[in-house]
């Protein structure tokens, strides 16, 4: 369980980092930030990059700034720990608390988690539900990608080989809900649900039921078409969500069980969204 050989460079700026990526001929360079997902893949030799570009020492990427009344910009190197500590976005605060354990939250970064594109990870799900916009840089380009379009499949994102995430623009939801069920404290959720209302529109994203965060379009329709969020409507939306997913089963839980969890967790997240209160009182930060 030791990585295969690789070269290693420290980038001083985003531009330099992506230039390193571009200069590797076989396109097998990888950015390393907190390393919480990449290091196990390296150790198991499941990832074999020829070059690791360390971006941890690039200045200016570890900040969260308020760019408008309703949006924040989050630098790619912002650690989960800082998401827990910030108060601008209660949804991000809540979701980040569910990520791993404190050592993981201390190193892991928002850019790394999004780029890794694990369909069960908390931040991609929240990014889709909240309608985040990902700011991406290449050697000669700069562009933005909606979170909805960023995730392509399991551990697959829409970055070109020579691009990196520089920052994320996150709307601040008026109302939100977050619910996760994991087998142990700190595990990836079997099912995770984030619901967020931004400018009057509710989006619901579910993780653990497909190769990327899945929007619950029918449930969203029910919620958005209704003036009030009654218990009956929540139940209806939860059932619609359960009817729309086709998860795979494994030894951690059957497909049927995961569908059951989708119903229950969509219900919980919408109840929370409706009440405007986090239902967890445990402070894990």
């Amino acid at each position: 369980m030791k990585p295969a050989p690789f070269d290693y460079v420290v980038a001083a700026s985003p531009r330099e980092a992506v230039q390193y990526l571009a200069d590797v001929e076989d396109a097998s360079a990888k950015i390393i930030a907190g390393g919480q997902s990449l290091m196990p893949l390296l150790a198991l030799r499941l990832a074999r990059p020829s070059l690791l570009v360390d971006i941890n020492r690039i200045p200016g990427l570890e900040t969260i700034e308020r760019i408008s009344e309703t949006t924040i910009r989050i630098g790619t190197l912002v650690r989960h720990r800082m998401l827990c500590a910030q108060t601008n976005s209660p949804l991000l605060h809540e979701a980040a608390r569910w990520i791993g354990h404190s050592a993981i939250r201390t190193r892991g970064t928002i850019g790394g988690s999004l780029a890794h594109a694990d369909p069960a990870a908390e931040l991609p799900i929240v990014a889709v539900a909240a309608g985040m916009v990902i700011e991406v840089m290449g050697p000669s380009t700069q562009r933005t990608v909606d979170a909805q379009d960023f995730f392509i499949g399991t551990l697959e994102n829409s970055l070109a080989d020579d691009e990196m995430i520089v920052s994320v623009i996150s709307p601040l939801p008026e109302r939100w809900g977050f619910a996760e069920y994991a087998r142990r404290h700190g595990d990836f959720g079997l099912v995770t649900v984030a619901a967020a209302e931004v400018q009057g529109e509710v989006k619901i994203a579910v993780g653990g039921v497909g190769s990327k965060p899945v929007r619950m379009l029918e449930s969203e329709g029910l919620v958005n078409d209704s003036v009030t969020l009654s218990g009956q409507l929540i139940d209806q939306a939860a059932r619609a969500a359960a009817a729309s997913v086709e998860p795979n089963g494994d030894f951690h839980g059957s497909a049927r069980y995961r569908i059951g969890l989708v119903e229950e967790l969509v219900r919980r997240s919408l109840r929370q969204l409706g009440s405007g209160q986090a239902d967890s009182e445990v402070d894990w930060s």
Partner: peptide, 28 residues
């Protein structure tokens, strides 16, 4: 409640890391 070494039908260990072989933490 948690720990289970599972082989698939071909005899491959499906629970080959501590991400799948779940050892309880102090939280459990």
């Amino acid at each position: 409640m948690y720990e289970h070494l599972i082989y698939d039908g071909d005899g491959n260990l499906s629970t080959g890391t501590l991400m799948d072989y779940l050892i309880p933490t102090s939280g459990e």
